[in-house]
Design a protein around this nucleic acid. Sequence first.
DNA 1: CTAATTATTTAGCAAGCGCTACAAATCGCA
DNA 2: TGCGATTTGTAGCGCTTGCTAAATAATTAG
Lengths: 238, 238
Amino acid sequence: MKSTDAPARPRGRPRGFDRDAALERATRVFWRQGYEGTSIADLTRAMRINPPSLYAAFGDKERLYLEAVERYQQGRRDELAPLLDQAPTARQAIERLLHEAARLYAQPDAPRGCMLMLSGTACGEASLQSQLAKRRADARKALKARIERGLREGELPRGTDAGALADFYATILKGMALQARDGASRRNLVATVEAAMRAWPAPHESAVKTRSVMSAPRGRSSQRIRRSPERHSSSDGD
Amino acid sequence: MKSTDAPARPRGRPRGFDRDAALERATRVFWRQGYEGTSIADLTRAMRINPPSLYAAFGDKERLYLEAVERYQQGRRDELAPLLDQAPTARQAIERLLHEAARLYAQPDAPRGCMLMLSGTACGEASLQSQLAKRRADARKALKARIERGLREGELPRGTDAGALADFYATILKGMALQARDGASRRNLVATVEAAMRAWPAPHESAVKTRSVMSAPRGRSSQRIRRSPERHSSSDGD
DNA sequence: CTAATTATTTAGCAAGCGCTACAAATCGCA
DNA sequence: TGCGATTTGTAGCGCTTGCTAAATAATTAG
């Protein structure tokens, strides 16, 4: 086997710029100014390339934007998903995620707020708007999955509507992104996170005496969950 | 006194269109598509006037936008301020306001979400962005004032940070606006409102036995409040 | 009536937009 | 060295943008 051995240098003149670095610079500009507020001239200046290089490497403005959002969201996922997965309880998972969001949204060396949450919300391009809404729905789905896990593990009151709770914390994240864009400090955002955590459903008096370790949903309430009809559910697409 | 008797018909050719109706049509377009996503051609088509009429009546695109926002916010104020003022408690005031917001943001015959909250959040024009942030800060100030009144009237635990609580519910409103724009139904939004109200500070075990009437802050805790330093406060500009 | 004033219509300007044709430059391969 | 392949910088295309000059229409004042 020696066909696909090395990366196999392509044939013609090699690209003279770092594609990913240029994409990151583009992301910054889009993040700060939005899709419609950013011109190709803005982008080429920030990316330090000329228009033909941009179009050769990224297609057109819309595809560049979508790739920038994908890059951004991937980075956030890498930072936040472990927080969700590794926290011992769903409550702590959400709380840590919100605290981390408060830090990220008010970072001094980056545009304020969340690029994904602020993207294409008042945008003429309908196709963009729906694609971004879908990405936001994916983020909510991650919250919902963690909450459902907590529900299975008995941390939450029976009958808790995981979708509605996920909707609530998704709303918090979106609101925080806007607040940050309007100038809220990290301290402000943290205070809001603390308020938001007061909305977490109270456990049912009993249980939760064991501090942490318990991991597996042992004994009763096995993996096969009861699949309660959940009256009319939340904004589920899954 | 017969100087300013009648409205005093102006001198030249009278305007051939209803200025306020045109402004409302412009508001709709801006609300749906945002500032940068709306062209003068979009506006003149919706307003059913030609560009020179637009410029004669409204100045330029930016001033027309600001006037549209002002008109929009004034309308919201007229609907929502009475709810805040007339509710017997601060808690009910906020709760009713949020429920009304849930209704307004998901109205079928209007653009989804709140024009003010979604305006110029990812916008190139810095001056617009700051003016809109200021308007949003005014809305928060109304929440804060009502919460402070509740605090004076003894409904809330001593030491409650009214600014932080106002920040929290302002965050909820902004998040709901985005959720609505992403397609959340009124039912979804109402569920989020109910979750948000769980974050309301619990009264201090005592008190709150009298169901409602009490109005004046009688007896102790008079008008002169203690003016506690409130460690580092919230995002106050007032 | 005439003159002055304001609104409307038509037509289009200058600038910026997203995007691309073109030729020179730089590569792998023969 | 020459050839095909690919990227690069220059220059600019066609179109849309926000906005306006100029002529005409409709009104009041004298």
